[in-house]
């Protein structure tokens, strides 16, 4: 288990990380999201012991990162942002070096290096100098380093950055598979990745956690989540509205478009999680004998939720109505 309590980090007067706490257990893959400069990398650097927090605690397994850094670090694998590498080494030499620092010797080291090379598809470049690798291969070499000792805890800062679509896919399934046994924290700017591999996601903005939940829970934060869109022909707007409001489960009806022949509405349920709601609306529509060509439930969209809770400074200053989504963490 990785446990983080009340982490705070200042850079000069600037608070990069402001009181972040969370826990990740084995079997979990935590997606770490947030706009540029939100404090994701800074948080990860504090978790891995690279930078000391100004206050707060990091616990890895049963070890405290501040009091027992060596043993805590032994349990961790870390892929830093931008995948730094020693430019003058070969991929094989670099991985051997990493394995050796991880305490692997002799045959065990050879085996670990070989496995990491295979897992990360590095065979074609194993004896090439790091300097001459393409960006994606560099990233994979550094990724290989992070898993070489099969750690229980993995911290990956943008692991799919710079990879081609096939490799992105491979790395995602690798993370998903490893996540069954390990606790993994990874940051990303690709929201589909979160839906695909994470069991849980945290969104941070300006050093604060603004959302924490499973991908589906995050999607449910969308203001339209659970609402039903309906497109009816040949009925007056007032009739549509009146009929729908007779349903006790309906909270309100919003008219999106209304012409003489077509009425487009969005129907919001009282209980957003009520899965039978679309059926109820459909029953009513068929009973009334309306002609319709669209009836669908909104599942929420992660990108819009993300935008809603992490508006960039420029937008926030100009918009008076504030964030689109309100959250209680």
């Amino acid at each position: 288990m990785i446990k983080i309590e009340n982490l705070v980090k200042f850079f000069g007067p600037k608070k990069a990380v402001d009181d972040i706490s969370f826990t990740v257990s084995k079997g979990e893959v935590l997606g770490f999201l947030g706009p540029n400069g939100a404090g994701k990398s800074t948080t990860m650097r504090m978790i891995t012991g690279f930078i000391p927090p100004d206050s707060g605690r990091v616990q890895v397994g049963e070890f405290d990162m501040l009091n027992d850094p060596i043993r805590a670090k032994q349990l961790l694998g870390y892929l830093p942002e931008n995948a730094p590498l020693y430019a003058d080494m070969s991929v094989y030499g670099f991985l051997s070096f990493a394995a050796e620092l991880r305490g692997l010797r002799g045959a065990a080291r050879k085996k670990a290096v070989q496995e990491a090379i295979e897992t990360c598809f590095l065979e074609p470049v194993a004896h090439q100098t790091v300097d001459t690798l393409s960006k994606g291969y560099k990233h994979r070499a550094c990724f290989a380093q992070s898993i070489i000792h099969d750690p229980d805890y993995l911290i990956l800062d943008e692991p799919t950055d710079g990879l081609d679509p096939n490799q992105k896919h491979e790395v995602r399934s690798l993370i998903r598979n490893m996540g069954r046994r390990k606790a993994i924290i990874f940051s990303t700017h690709i929201l589909e990745e979160v839906l695909e591999v994470c069991t849980r996601a945290i969104i941070i903005d300006r050093g604060h956690i603004v959302a924490n939940g499973s991908p589906n829970e995050l999607k449910a934060m969308h203001p339209n989540f659970g609402s039903v869109r309906l497109n009816v022909y040949g009925v007056a707007e007032g009739d549509v509205r009146g009929k729908l409001n007779t349903l006790s489960q309906v909270e309100r009806v919003e008219v999106i478009k209304s012409t003489s022949e077509q009425v487009k509405v969005r129907v919001y349920p009282k209980d957003k999680k009520d899965e039978s709601f679309p059926t109820l609306v459909a029953d009513l529509v068929t009973k009334s004998g309306w002609k319709f060509d669209e009836l669908s439930m909104d599942k929420g969209r992660l990108d819009e939720v993300f935008r809603g809770i992490t508006l960039p400074d420029t937008v926030k200053k100009s918009s008076k109505e504030g964030p689109v989504v309100t959250v209680n963490v």
Binding site: F50, P80, N82
Partner: peptide, 14 residues
Amino acid sequence: RLGTIELLLTMPVT
């Protein structure tokens, strides 16, 4: 400059 210091110092070494 290369950022490898981050790799090195997050290894279990002092």
